[in-house]
Design a protein around this nucleic acid. Structure first.
Lengths: 217, 217
DNA sequence: ACAGCCCCTGAACGGTCGTTCATTTGGCCG
DNA sequence: CGGCCAAATGAACGACCGTTCAGGGGCTGT
C-alpha cells in the first residue's frame, strides 16, 4: 500500500460540504464528529476535517490548539451532557430504585440511539487522546457507572432487587459494567432506518435490565 | 504535536522482546496481537512490530504481503476459532435451549476473559481492514449472532423463554445483539488481577442472560 | 477614509509512514 | 568444502502527516 486513505469499513453515513454557514467553530466540531465516527481519529487528517467544512488546514488553529484538543473538546462536551442527563433522569424518577433504573436506561439508550455519531466518537475514540487529557473523561465515565452502582445498591438494600451472585457474593460493579456495555454499544449497530423505534429500544433494554437484576414485580 | 507515537491510553499490558525463538511467523503474529491491542492498528508501525520480535521492518514482507494482510490473518484466525468453539459448545449442550444458552455464554465469556488481547483486536480493530478483506470476518460474526438468535427462537417456541417485547412483538435479533454486546466487551475491562475468576464471570453473565430472556426455572 | 483586528490562505518544515530491493547472512545438502 | 536458497538487513523512495507562519483580505469603529 502507498495510499493512506483507507476508511474504516464501519458504521455511519457520508459527509462533504460547501462552506458551512454556522460559526466556523461549530462547523469544525460537526465535521470532526462525522469524520471521526466514519473513519476513526488517527486516519482522519486535519485537512480532511477542514475541507469538509469548506476551509483549509491552517484555519483549524485559529480555533483549537491542536487536533488532539479538538478531539477532547468534542468528546468532553458530549460526555458532560450525557452525565448531566443521567443525573437529572435519576433525580426526577422518585425514590423507587426500579423507577430510577428504568429512567436511567431510557435516557441513556435513547441518547445513544439518537446521537449515534456523538456516542460513537465519545466511546470509541477516547483511547487516542493524550494521556493528560483523558483523565476528566474517565472521571465522568466512572461517575456514570457509579450512578448505576448506587441504584443497584439501593435496590438490593431495600429488597427490591435480587441480582445474581458471582463467587458467593454480589458484585454490583461487574453487573453495572455488563449493563452499561450493552446500553452503550447500541450506538454501534442501531440504525434509524431500523425496524425498532428509539422508544421501543429504550423499553426493551429497560425490561432486560430489570429482569437481569431481579427486580420484584 | 510533532512526535507521532502517542499510545492509546487504554487497556492491556507491556511488550518488548529479544529475538523470539518461535517460528518467525508465529512471533510476528504474537507481537502484532500485543501491539495492536495496546495501541491500535493505525499507530502501530511495521517497525514497531518487527522490533518487538527482534527483527527489522523489511523482514515482515517475507511472511505477509502487507500490514493489512497481517491484521486480517490474526483477526481471521481468532474469529474462526471463536466461531468453532461456540458451535461446538451449543452442539454438546443437549437439546434444552436453557442449557444451550448457558453453554454458549460460558464458552464465549470465558474466552473473552482469558484471551483478552486476541478478543480486543478481533473486535476493535476490524474496522481498519481493507473493505475487501472484511467480508469473511463479518460473515463469521453474523454466524455467531445467528447461533444466539437460533437458541432464543427455540426457547420461545418451546415456551421455555419469555423474552421482553419491543413495539408489540419480540425482536430476537435485537435481544441477541444486546446480549452479545455485553459478553463481548468483558474483554475491555476484565483484568486477570481482578476479584472475580473467569468461571464466576461466566456464571454471572449466564445468569443475567437467562433472566433477561425470561427463562423458566 | 483609515487603522486595527480577526480570520483565512497555502507554502513550507521536519518527521514518519508502508513498502521495495540490492545485498548479505547463515544453515543445509552433496 | 562449496554451492544454494530462504530469510534478514537497512538504505532508499514517494507520499503524507500535524503544525507553523508570513501574507492578504474584509469587517468594525472612529
Amino acid at each position: 500500500m502507498t495510499k493512506r486513505k483507507q476508511a474504516r469499513t464501519d458504521v455511519v453515513a457520508p459527509a462533504v460540504a460547501e462552506r458551512d454557514q454556522r460559526q466556523p467553530i461549530e462547523a469544525i466540531r460537526a465535521a470532526a464528529f462525522q469524520q471521526f465516527a466514519e473513519r476513526g481519529y488517527p486516519v482522519v487528517t486535519v485537512r480532511d476535517i477542514m475541507k469538509a467544512c469548506g476551509l483549509t488546514q491552517g484555519a483549524l488553529y485559529n480555533h483549537f490548539k491542536s487536533k488532539d484538543e479538538l478531539l477532547h473538546d468534542i468528546i468532553a462536551s458530549t460526555q458532560g451532557e450525557l452525565e448531566r442527563l443521567c443525573q437529572q433522569a435519576v433525580a426526577e424518577a422518585g425514590s423507587d430504585p426500579r423507577a430510577k433504573l428504568a429512567a436511567f436506561v431510557r435516557v441513556y439508550v435513547m441518547r445513544h440511539c439518537r446521537l449515534r455519531v456523538e456516542a460513537l466518537v465519545a466511546n470509541r475514540e477516547i483511547g487516542w487522546l493524550d494521556p493528560g487529557r483523558v483523565a476528566d473523561i474517565r472521571r465522568s465515565r466512572r461517575a456514570i457507572r457509579d450512578i448505576v452502582v448506587g441504584i443497584l445498591a439501593q435496590g438490593v438494600e431495600s429488597g427490591l432487587f435480587d441480582p445474581p451472585r458471582a463467587g458467593g457474593r454480589v458484585d454490583l460493579k461487574a453487573i453495572a459494567m455488563a449493563l452499561l456495555d450493552q446500553w452503550t454499544h447500541v450506538s454501534m449497530w442501531y440504525g434509524p432506518g431500523g425496524e425498532i423505534a428509539e422508544e421501543e429500544m429504550a423499553r426493551l433494554y429497560a425490561d432486560m435490565a430489570l429482569r437481569a437484576v431481579g427486580a420484584r414485580a
